[in-house]
């Protein structure tokens, strides 16, 4: 395969040289090639850094993707969230899980069909099921006195659409790293507009926002499993 690809590239160079000569006739043929397909499993390391900035959040996100065709990948993420917070204003407990499913599409066009480093755009549908309760909250009022109450355990589901752009590179053999920028648009907006919204929606972000921007940094391992069949264009020149 390596040899064939080298031939392919040298042929391209010849055609570039050949166009200078006037009477060259070009034949375009498509040669089938196989790309190593498989399952890429990764973990999002930004979720661990997040705990430093938002100590009440414990998040774990794992990501997986599999190549379908030359430029298209099926991809998804599984997330778990546990939120626990107590201060003088309120206490909060929540946990839940989410799943996202969608595709990534490679944007780099002029490349070796088996190229492993890609720049991609993607879309996901996200779904989360979670529950939360507010065991106690206090509205502080220096004039009339503090008001304390609680909010009972509530189950909720969230749906969102996620748009993303990212890059991914093979750092060592079968070992990948890459980041992606994501925007999540909550479909059931009523969830965010409640008087008692969730503090965190698993896999989504802040529970009182209808739109969430996020960054993921995935460290992943590729397990070769199958072959993806595709074609490369060959241009032959004859006089």
């Amino acid at each position: 395969m390596q040899l064939r690809l080298r031939c392919f590239f040298s042929l391209l160079l010849l055609t570039a040289a050949g166009t200078a000569g006037a009477q060259a006739i070009k034949d375009t043929t498509y040669k089938p090639v196989e790309i190593q397909g498989g399952l890429r499993l990764g973990v999002d390391i930004t979720r661990f850094a997040l705990k430093y900035f938002q100590p009440y959040r414990t998040d774990v996100t794992v990501a997986a993707d599999a190549q379908y065709s030359r430029n298209l990948y099926f991809a998804g993420e599984l997330s778990y969230n546990n939120t626990s917070h107590t201060d003088s204003n309120y206490s909060y407990k929540g946990n839940g899980a989410s799943v996202t499913l969608g595709v990534d599409y490679n944007l780099l066009k002029k490349r070796d069909p088996g190229e492993k480093n890609i720049i991609y755009v993607g879309a996901r549908y996200g779904f989360a099921a979670f529950s939360y309760d507010i065991p106690t909250y206090t509205v502080h009022d220096p004039i009339w006195g503090d008001y304390s109450s609680s909010y009972p355990k509530t189950n909720a589901t969230a749906h969102w659409v996620e748009l993303l752009i990212g890059i991914r590179a093979e750092v060592f053999r079968n070992f990948y790293m890459g980041w992606s920028l994501r925007d999540r648009i909550l479909l059931n907006k009523g969830l965010a507009n409640r008087d008692f919204p969730a503090l965190v929606i698993p896999g989504y972000g802040k529970g009182n926002k209808g739109n969430q921007f996020d960054v993921m940094y995935n460290v992943s391992y590729f397990i070769p499993l199958y072959k993806v069949h595709t074609k490369v264009m060959e241009i032959k020149t004859r006089k």
């Binding site: 938002q54 917070h85 201060d87 204003n89 206090t138 008692f196 009182n208």
Partner: peptide, 8 residues
């Protein structure tokens, strides 16, 4: 609810 920092 206002925000995680402010509470209610």
């Amino acid at each position: 609810f206002i925000s995680a920092g402010c509470g209610f």
